[in-house]
Write a protein that binds this DNA or RNA. Sequence first.
DNA 1: TACTTGTCCTGTCATGCCGTCAGCTTACCG
DNA 2: CGGTAAGCTGACGGCATGACAGGACAAGTA
Lengths: 215, 215
Amino acid sequence: MTGQVRTVDGRVAGRRGQATRQKLLDCLSEMLSTEPYRDVKVIDVARKAGTSPATFYQYFPDVEGAVLELAEEMATEGASLTDLVAGRSWAGKSGWQTAEELVDGFLGFWRKHDAILRVVDLGAAEGDKRFYKIRMKILNAVTNSLTDAVKELQSKGKVDKDVSPAAMAGSLVAMLAAVAAHQKGFQSWGVKQAELKPSLALLVHLGITGKKPTK
Amino acid sequence: MTGQVRTVDGRVAGRRGQATRQKLLDCLSEMLSTEPYRDVKVIDVARKAGTSPATFYQYFPDVEGAVLELAEEMATEGASLTDLVAGRSWAGKSGWQTAEELVDGFLGFWRKHDAILRVVDLGAAEGDKRFYKIRMKILNAVTNSLTDAVKELQSKGKVDKDVSPAAMAGSLVAMLAAVAAHQKGFQSWGVKQAELKPSLALLVHLGITGKKPTK
DNA sequence: TACTTGTCCTGTCATGCCGTCAGCTTACCG
DNA sequence: CGGTAAGCTGACGGCATGACAGGACAAGTA
């Protein structure tokens, strides 16, 4: 699927080249989690990786290009988020469990990749289609599954027909993403994770099934 | 409350100075809505305002400093968001109306200030306390009111005791903020505003009262 | 009108990052 | 051993940054 890794000027990267490239990505990733995106400079990344700026430009057009690469990587891993919803039951006790595990898995994924996700979020909000696409790729994994769940419940007459499945699923996923992005903020405000998760799970359950969960 | 406007080197700004300062802020605001935050340069803002970079540095320490100024301005205006919740009823039809108007007001405010809010969001997510404080100031207006609403309904026995009012309110507000921030994204994905708002209002109503609304 | 005072703006400069290129070193292969 | 392509870097013009000193300007005073 993905062709060979290539340098900006078209050469195919060999073993050594790929290693250098990866090292640059690793350093960039680390820098993103320790200082503002706006202040990340090519020269700093290069220095940290023990190489020169010119080398950086051999593998990436600019910082944004490298960030996109990191984001793609993460998005691929994010495909596994589908498993949090697909094929699960929303009835009775297992419905509550489904909601809880979805919240748990989502927050965990976000915490793991928070630095790069921040930048993706910004890019998407600024209207950059490339970032938006990546964001969709991650969120769609969950959104589509949730949309299907609502549709199915609707067809069984268990959920009001006037709810738009896509809009409901989208809203819930946006909520999860937002809370996940500001986890630290919530904490410093006095709201503990232990309280946050049940609220989120409750909202997810209410939104999908329209009913209070049986725990 | 706010003392006199001062330049970086301590002089008090007169009428002309304040006008220049404001013009710089206006131009910065406009630039933020037309290009990525990362690419906004002092020299561009100055050029746009018909002045020189040196003038910019007389009023602001850097771009971030100026953005903070814009954000403070907006936060002050955002205090009026409290009115969307304070003193409203959550019972019966008026409860549904409260939810609808909250969603409407919130999305409107966000759309009006989307450019600056993006940057505030990023700053907050990156852990910058100054931005986080501003974000709180805006969201708290709504969050606190919602928290009170939940507490009151709990005391009347209408809502389960095991729900944390703060966590629930915080989650809902985070959802509204997130959806608001990605309004354009939703649209381009095929979800229309007309479908989005009812879903959000429904979730708000469900979250606060625990019950389906009567429309 | 000429002078004074304080505000306001800009020309200029040292510094540092950006992005590119030519050219050197290294690795692989016949 | 020589050829070829990959891999890396020093160096350079260009531009943004941030500081300063000094000029332009408005308003009050004699």
